[in-house]
């Protein structure tokens, strides 16, 4: 049994790493544009330290936008925190699949990035943490190196928007979404709900809030319809 389990772990790490390569390509493109945009605001060292130790793209862009507009540290911290708030519910979703001590679970939680987390979704509320860790690793390297490249080679790159780099991640998330919606009609309904919530809140709520609110569409899972459509999901279900 022990050997079988080691084999399964190795398979998770290998398939996760392979799945992480395309994520890392998208991450690299975005990281270069972060470096280019951050250098005039933060200098050369700070953007690279930020990428290495914060490692959260949307939060870094949000904080950078506030600093670039002269909004000050507190407003920048608030903007970055709002963008990262989604990792709270994402971590709760991951938690039942994690084993070991609280410290070990906290460390696995640090490897959450949107794409790797979504790809590690095994349905029925289960995640494959080893797959997620391995899928995040290439993106970590790409994020730090890409930021450094943007900081030091920004003059060669020019305006990142002219290269369409800001469309790389929504296109990638759309590709992940096209896999998720094949899980059935409830997933499709959750997507429709999330789109409606995000569109409705974007003009009125601070950045970050529409994305967390969009996750509320997942509460469809609590409804009788959600239970009927997905009878195999979860252990100890009462449906």
């Amino acid at each position: 049994m022990r050997i079988a389990r080691d084999q399964a772990d190795q398979d998770s790490l290998r398939t996760g790493f392979e799945a992480g390569i395309p994520i890392a390509v998208a991450t690299l493109l975005i990281a270069v544009s972060f470096g280019v945009l951050a250098r005039p605001v933060m200098g050369t060292v700070a953007p690279i330290v930020m990428s290495a130790l914060v490692f959260a793209g949307s939060a870094q862009f949000a904080a950078l936008a506030v600093l670039a507009a002269g909004g000050g540290a507190w407003a920048a911290i608030a903007a970055g925190t709002l963008m990262n708030a989604r990792f709270g519910p994402m971590g709760i979703a991951l938690a039942p699949s994690l084993e070991g001590s609280p410290l070990r679970r906290a460390l696995v939680g640090q490897t959450m990035i949107d794409a790797a987390w979504a790809l590690a979704n095994r349905g029925g509320g289960r995640f494959d943490p080893k797959f997620m860790m391995a899928a995040t690793l290439p993106s970590y390297v790409a994020w730090v190196l890409g930021t450094a490249a943007g900081v030091f080679a920004g003059d060669l790159i020019g305006d990142p928007d002219a290269l369409g780099l800001d469309a790389a991640f929504p296109a990638f998330f759309l590709a992940l979404l096209s896999t998720e919606v094949r899980r059935g009609p409830v997933a499709l309904a959750a997507v429709a709900g999330a789109v409606a919530i995000a569109l409705a809140l974007t003009p009125v709520a601070p950045p970050g809030v529409p994305i967390i609110a969009a996750c509320l569409a997942a509460l469809l899972g609590l409804t009788r319809w959600g239970a009927r459509q997905d009878p195999g999901a979860g252990e100890g279900g009462d449906a």
Binding site: P96, D114, G125, F173, A218, G221, A227, A239
Partner: peptide, 20 residues
């Protein structure tokens, strides 16, 4: 069970929100 079903739907909901 209902919480696990909600968790299972979080990935499509989050991805849709990010795309939009």
């Amino acid at each position: 069970g209902p919480v696990m079903r909600t968790i299972a739907l979080m990935a499509p909901a989050l991805l849709a929100g990010l795309v939009v």
